[in-house]
Structure formats: structure tokens, C-alpha cells
Design a protein around this nucleic acid. Sequence first.
RNA 1: GCGCGUGUAGCUCAGUUGGAUAGAGCGCUCGCCUCCUAAGCGAGAGGUCCCCGGUUCAAAUCCGGGCACGCGUACCA
Length: 685
Amino acid sequence: MILPVHHALRRHVAATLTSLYGLAPEDQPALTIEVPPQRRFGDLASPFAFELARRLRKAPRAIAAEVVAALGPIEGVARVEAAPNGYVNVFLDRAAFLRARLSNPDAADRSLSSPIPREKTIVEHTAINPNKAAHIGHLRNSSLGDTLVRLLRFLGVPVEVQNYIDDTGVQVADVVVGFQHLEGKSLDEVRAIAREARFDYYCWDLYARVTEWYEADKARLQVRADTLHAIEHGEGEAAAMGHLIAEHIVRCHLRTMARLNIDYDLLTWEGDILRLHFWATAFDILRKNGSVFLQEEGRLKGCWVMRIDEDPTAGEAAGTPDAMPADAVSGEDVDEAEQREKVIVRSNGTVTYVGKDIAYQFWKMGLLGRDFHYREFARRIDGAPLWATTSDEGALRGGVDPVPAFGGAHATYNVIDTRQTYLQKLLKQALFTMGHRLEAERSTHFAYEMVALTHATARELGYDVSDQADRPFVEVSGRKGLGVKADDLLDRLIEKALEEVGRRNAEIGAEAQRRIARQIAVAALRYFMVKFTRNKVIAFDIDEALSFEGESGPYLQYSAVRAQNIFGKLKERLGLDKAAVEAALADAERSALEGPEADDVWDLVLQCSRLDEVAEQALRALELSLLAKYAFGLAQAFNGFYHRHQILNEPREGARLWRAAVAAYFLEQITRALDLMGSAVPERM
RNA sequence: GCGCGUGUAGCUCAGUUGGAUAGAGCGCUCGCCUCCUAAGCGAGAGGUCCCCGGUUCAAAUCCGGGCACGCGUACCA
């Protein structure tokens, strides 16, 4: 890990700037530390002299030279140079650096070096409507969400993972309508169907048919409204059927996600928010302080609304330069004001999604003064209980395991696609206007763009998308049944990986082959989902996603497997394991690591060490593709090393040992990086 | 209309809170398995970083103004 070195460097430079120029730490520029483009420039570099040039009225080059001369020795640093252009370049003690990384795995120095607050954080992700199978759009959400969770945990932040289940919404109601009105099924009949395999696929098709059924006669939308009302109020067979459907579909989703190494601590059911009067409590608070009021006239008459403030920071800059056109009449202003009101409670008394979510968000932050009851819903991947909220007070007593203290977080991340940015802004504003300024600041909407299909892939899957011919890609639509189901995609990936694994490893047996193929498929899919920056629409192309070459998850795995194989053979031929290599380094001849001819070997070590720096950067920027790109670059660097420098066939013992040490460090770091993306290193490929 | 996002190689995309010669994957051309696995490696061709102006030692990156595309702006979520 490299961050401790950064910190030591900053401390020394800051002290020197103080003693040399009388600059107090708070007057100093941010001491940016970069990786120079070429190794001959150094291992780390800082351009601080450029920033100080103006203030000190000196050439950057002179400042750099003075600071370097006064710097004194720094632990782990071999030498510091002032470059002719003004950069300050730092050269590390290579051998000492590598040995320290190998023997001192991580946790200790990681906690020292990061300014990230290590307080309870809730990450909400997945939140698929429980009325149909999961598709690739959902996969982007849960892959990003789970990677974010792993990243936070890697950085030492305690995380609680929640999956919000909208069991009382329109989408579940639609499937109930399908069963009752299109198929004429009773509750018992639906129960029987739900027990069969692929209930989520069944509902996928039914849901699409319901959409068509509405379209054929708009009057049928009244059926939906009635059904939704019944579900919200827990009345009759519709409510029971809705509950049954949601419960079974959620289990389907959990199975799908478990295949991708994704799971949760708690399922929060929207129905419980209603039944336990979370909303009523939140509404009370909002109404009392005036955040929400009853609109008595106009378009929204009879609704409880919340006024949406303009961004307070935007006010200043809005000064109009010249005379505004006078035709902006006052009537339009009124319209605009009205448009800036968001309905929280409809005139028929039902609560919108925003309302329910406000209550949920209050609870997450420990501001509601109420709590759910809990039940054990299933078991997690590791065998621990997966909890769900419930309205049943008695449920607590049934469990064997003590119920953890859910909610009451210091910070939250809501992983929700960018189309809901407006709603998420409202949520934050609700917190803010209630005086919970800090909580509002610590509520983060992790927004990402949607997944669409390329035209080629849509055609290949047999969809008629001629109506979207003029658009750059084809939008996925659960409502129309247009999309790639997560399990189908994963099955195809496994099948393809299995072919390749079987060809290369005929001798290892079918079960091992299948296990490896699954690991490869997961890495392929999850890497694909995080390698794009989050505000880029993914035009999903089946052939591209099925590729195991180039910038892909399997490429990363392959590089790790190569390193693994070297250690297998080292053990087999020379009886050396990782510990033995480490122990032997103390006396080993270092020339394999020193000098310009070893720059590329050393470069790999340096890159390996940057995982902590990249992890922190990825979290700060909320850009998980940084992690993906880093891991890919690391694998590339190792593959280059692998081809240029032999280990097993290297006759000089010193070179062999140091290179083996480099491979060991690489394997350690690439394994961690893959794990952050929910992927494993296969035993072989 | 307003708000947010995007625009970089033939295609898909990176480009680290402004920094050293603008990169990767795919595709294309050529080369590398007697040697730790070729799911790999190397070489080559390929650029008006959407356009115009500004800020400064330095701009693909920041600011202003345009253009194009996407999303949002619901008593849906």
C-alpha cells in the first residue's frame, strides 16, 4: 500500500516549507502527489513548486531545489531530486519497499493513512420491483452497489446493506391484475404456480401481457387503481396475492444475486413502512414545521405538497445582464411556482413514493423515533441470517440469532439510477429543511446511467424495435418484457466459459470445470458492469459481454492464475512457498530490482502498491470504474513482466527470488482487487 | 422552456480534484508457443480531444457562449 508513503512525504515537505519560507501548513498548497509518466523521472512526484512560484516570487525550479536541499532523510525514500522543470521527484528504496509490503499485509497502515470517517454507513441497492425476473439493468445497480459495499469495508467503514422491497406498488399490482383478470387464477392456484421453477420468468411474461391488456382499452386502468388501493390497505384476495407474489419473487432475486456473490443484511419492506405508521410519523413532523402543506387551489388542489427550492448556490449567479424580454408575464410565473411543488400525498389520500421514501430515509438516519420489527427471512451466502422487516411484533422472539441494531446510520448511499435524481434531491431537501443539515449532506445519491441494448443485440434476441430505429440504442423495458434476463445472461456466460475450460483442462473433472466456469462468468459480468464510468449509458452488446479477451474480468483472472501457477511450480520443483521466498530475500542479491534495466519490474511493484490510493480515490469520486481500470492496468503490467522475465528458469538465485516476490505481491493485490469486484481467482483456467 | 448528463482513434470507452510525448480494448496489417498456460505478448496504421472565446507558467480537463444527442421536469417509481 502506498498511502502511508504519501503521508510521510507530505509531512516532511510541509515541515520544510514552514522552516524555509515561514509558510504555516494552512497557507500551503495541497501537496499533490502523482506518479510520473516515466520511471526514470522517479517513483512519485509533486508539482507543489509551481503553485508556490507566484506567492514566493521565485522560479519553480529554484523552489524545488531549495526544498530538496533542506528536506533531510525520509524513511523508505532513497533520494529526492529537483527536476529542471520544477517538479520534485522521489525515488524509493525498492528492496525495502517490496519487503515491507509483503510482510506487513495491510490493515494497520490502511487505518492510519485514510481520512475517511469510519462510522456506520447504510448502502441501499438492488431494490427491484418484486414482480418479475431481474434483468441487466438491475445487474448494473447491484454490481455497483455491492462493489461500493466492498470498497467501503476495505477502507474500514462499517456498512449495513439494505435492499428495499416495493411490495405495495403499481408493478406488483399489475401482476395481480394479470393473475386475477387475464388468467382468472385463485390465490391457491397462484401459490401452486409460485412453487414451480422460474416463477420470475412466468411473471415477466404475464407483466408484459398486462401492459398490452391496458393498452387495448384504457378503461381497464381502473382495475389497476382498484387493485393498488386494495393492496395498500391490505384488503381481500388481491392483497394476499400481492404479498405472495412479492415474497416469492424476492426469493428469486436473492438466488440470482447470490450467483453473483451479492447479498444483503436487511430487506426493508415498503408495506411495513405503511403498516407501522412510519409515514404517519414523518408526515406529522413535516406538516408541523411547514415543509409540507395542503394546496387549496389550482391544479394540485387537495394534495399535500412540498415546495422544491432552487439550488441556493445558484441564486447569486443568476443576475440578468440586460433587460429581460418583457413577455415573461406574471401568469407564467404562477405556473412555474406551481410546477415547483411536488405532491407527497395525493388528493385521494394515498402516499406517493417520495413520501414513503422520506420516512424510510428518516429512519435510516435514526431521526424517526420508531423502529421496525424483524424476522429472519433466509440465510445469506455465508450462512448468517438475512433479516427482513416485519409489522409483526411477535416475530422477534422466534429467532435464534440476536437481531442486530438496524438503521441509525451516520451516512447513507442510495444506489439508484440517474432518472430518479430529482426525487433523490427532494429527499435530501426534506432532511435539510427539517434542520438535519448534516444528515442531508451525508445522504448520497449514487446515480448511474441506464443499460440499453445495441440494435444488433436487440435483433439477435428477436425483439422488434423498428419504432426505435432512429435512436442510438434500444431502451430496456420490463413493462414491455424487452430486455435480457440476468439468469439467462449468466447461463450463457457459464456455458461459453465451460467450453473453453473443458478444452484446456480436460483432466480435472466436470464438477471442477463447472465451478471454474461459474467464477469466470461472474467476473466477466461484474467487470463489464463496473468498467464504464457511471454516467455513461451502457449499450449492452451480447458479443462484447461474452468476450473473455482484452479488457475483461477473465483477463484479470488469467493473470492471477499465471502468478498462482508460478508458485505451484516453485513449490513442486524447488520446495519454495511464499514464506520461504520472503525469508530468503534478506540475503538475496538485489540487482534484479535495482538500476534502469529493472525499471519495469519495479514499476509493477509500485503499481501493485497503489490499490489503497485507488480505492480511496474511487470512493471520493464515487467512480468505481477507477478500480476496474486500475485492476486491468495491473494485470497488463504483470502480463508484460511475465513475458519479459522468467522466474522458474532464471539461473541467478537473487533474481529468481526477487521476481518471485514481485509475483507474490501482485497475486495478493490482484486477488484483493478482484474481490472488491465480487470476483474470485479460479484454481486454474 | 428550464435542469442534469454526454461529445476524445473506424467502433466501445479511459484520461487521476489543470501538469512531463493524449491512452486502452475491440477491429485491421504483420510478427511471437522446444522455454512459468497464446483467455497471452510485441510491432504498425489510425486524432480538428464537438465549435468559438476566456482564465494561466501550463487546458481534453476550469469559466463563458454556441451545436448535437440522451435523461428529467407526473396526483408513476
